[in-house]
């Protein structure tokens, strides 16, 4: 993959990345009561890194999100999801019954808030995993091929 030579593209891409990422978080926040959520947010977030790699090359993109990090985040997101579910369990509710996060005898308002945060929490977990997975997928496919044949057997 060759680096994009046009300074316009390089400039726009570099400036666009934080906005894309901010937008990803915005989509995530709306997952609860509107279109959006962890999946979409994650894909959008990952697209920012894909953009970097497209414009500045495989190495630059990988530097923004090293393999070590993405491999770490990918299970971490799921763990966040599962932990919140188990936390509900520990608080005496069913698995993923977020309202129980507020505690045994919380007010309705607190329960509502707890439900909110629980939902956002698991969506965040989803987003982490999706981001990491998309990035990994992209980089695995974009990786310069070593000098060996494919499946020859």
């Amino acid at each position: 993959m060759s680096d994009a030579q046009s300074p316009v593209i390089r400039y726009v891409a570099r400036r666009a990345v934080p906005f894309i990422q901010l937008y990803a978080l915005y989509v995530l926040g709306h997952g609860e009561d509107g279109p959006g959520g962890g999946f979409q947010g994650g894909v959008i977030f990952a697209s920012s890194i894909v953009l970097l790699a497209l414009v500045f090359g495989y190495g630059a993109g990988r530097k923004a999100c090293p393999e070590r990090i993405s491999d770490f985040i990918s299970p971490l997101g799921c763990l966040v999801y599962a932990s919140i579910g188990l936390l509900c369990l520990l608080m005496g509710g069913m698995f993923l019954e977020y309202a129980r996060l507020a505690g045994p005898d919380a007010s309705d308002h607190a329960k509502h808030a707890a439900h909110h945060f629980g939902l956002i929490g698991i969506e965040a977990g989803v987003m982490l995993t999706v981001t990491a997975s998309m990035v990994t997928l992209f980089f695995e496919m974009a990786r310069p091929a070593p000098d060996e044949g494919g499946l020859d057997e």
């Binding site: 770490f72 299970p75 799921c78 763990l79 599962a82 069913m94």
Partner: peptide, 20 residues
């Protein structure tokens, strides 16, 4: 009461923890 979900979640949790 919670065994059904724990049966699934414990190996899953462990499976996610292992690489970390």
């Amino acid at each position: 009461q919670h065994l059904p979900v724990l049966t699934i979640m414990v190996p899953m949790f462990a499976g996610l923890l292992v690489p970390l």
